[in-house]
Amino acid sequence: MREQEDDRLYSDPRLVDFYDLENGWGQDTRYCAELARTAGSVLDFGCGTGLFLAGIADGRPMVGVDPASAMLEVARHRTNGEQVRWVEGDIRSIRLGERFDLVTMTGHAFQCLLTDADVKAALATIAAHLTPSGQFIFDSRNPARREWEGWTPEASRRTVAHPDYGKVESWNDVAVDEETGVVCYETAYRLASGETLSSRSSIRFIDQAHLAGLIARAGLVIDVWLGDWIGAPFEPGCKEIIPLGRLA
């Protein structure tokens, strides 16, 4: 996605250094790792720094796709990173000419798709890379929870322990377009030297009913809607919107 590729949070090596400190192995990657146990091949879109695939690499065919070269550079140098094929590409248009038993997209990377046209293109790509019995899964924050309201400087201020910079003060700031569901937020890190590293990102919040319609029109079927990465079923007030499905 061009927007993500241009976002310094993903393209500036110094900001990429902070990414895993705040986005490490979690419930999403653990859930997907369990799904992957019985998959003969795995494709991960928005793979970022490769934490997930490198963590489960065991010789099976695995491909990680991301538009940010700085993120992929980290992925290639991970332990077991050499067992994964890392591809720089855009989910809206990439075609690998292969099909996979499991297609994943975690870390809310799906929300970097800012329009219905982007979502339709991404879903077509997912469909094009699934085996007849393959599964796909991704996550999106539920707009009903209005999580962005906690992304103000006052509410988000925190300290991040960096191995080179030490304790770093960090915060977010946010602006919301209620009509489109697009949220623009700033991520900032103030180093001990006084220098501030910052980036601006845009993501979209999409409701479950609208997403369900787009998925159905893409020739995909949802077997279960999850409301979190522990496995609870989706309900209107859930934090997450997580479709787990397959080809129609």
Rank of each mutant, 00 (worst) to 15 (best):
N172E: 15
G166W: 08
E22I: 10
R141Y: 14
S41G: 15
N172Y: 11
I126E: 01
T29G: 01
G166M: 09
A128Q: 10
G245V: 06
R78Y: 15
S133Y: 11
D6A: 08
E178T: 10
R190F: 01
G40P: 10
I137T: 04
G50V: 02
G50S: 03
P243F: 12
P236F: 14
T196R: 12
A33C: 06
R157S: 14
P233H: 01
A75W: 00
G227C: 03
P233V: 08
F45M: 07
H129K: 04
R246D: 07
A70L: 13
R30S: 13
F110G: 01
L130F: 12
T125W: 15
L114R: 02
A33H: 08
V74S: 09
A75C: 02
T159Q: 13
D116G: 03
P132Q: 11
A122Y: 15
Q27G: 07
H210D: 09
P13T: 08
A161V: 15
E88Y: 06
E147V: 14
V221M: 08
A128D: 15
P153F: 05
A192L: 07
A232F: 05
V87E: 05
R85H: 08
F110W: 15
R145P: 01
R95C: 07
H108E: 15
A70Y: 11
P143W: 07
E34G: 04
L96M: 10
D28Q: 06
G89Q: 14
L9E: 14
D164G: 04
A232N: 13
G237H: 09
E5Q: 11
S198W: 01
A188L: 06
W86P: 09
F205Q: 08
T115G: 00
S201D: 08
S140F: 08
L43G: 02
L191H: 07
E240H: 09
G231A: 10
G213V: 00
G97W: 13
V160W: 14
A70C: 06
V168M: 13
P13Q: 09
P153N: 02
M1R: 03
L35F: 13
T131W: 10
A248Y: 13
P163D: 07
I230S: 11
W86T: 03
T131E: 07
V224E: 05
P67C: 03
D164Q: 14
L53W: 03
T38W: 12
L191F: 09
D12V: 05
D116M: 06
P236D: 12
A54N: 14
R99G: 01
M62R: 11
S201W: 04
G55N: 00
V65T: 11
H77Q: 15
H162Q: 12
R85E: 15
P233G: 09
E82N: 09
L214K: 06
V224Q: 12
F110P: 00
R14C: 07
T49W: 04
E88K: 08
V224A: 08
G245D: 03
D6G: 05
V65R: 05
C32E: 06
E82K: 12
P13K: 04
P61W: 00
V183S: 05
S199N: 03
D139M: 10
S133L: 11
P163Q: 08
D66M: 01
T152L: 07
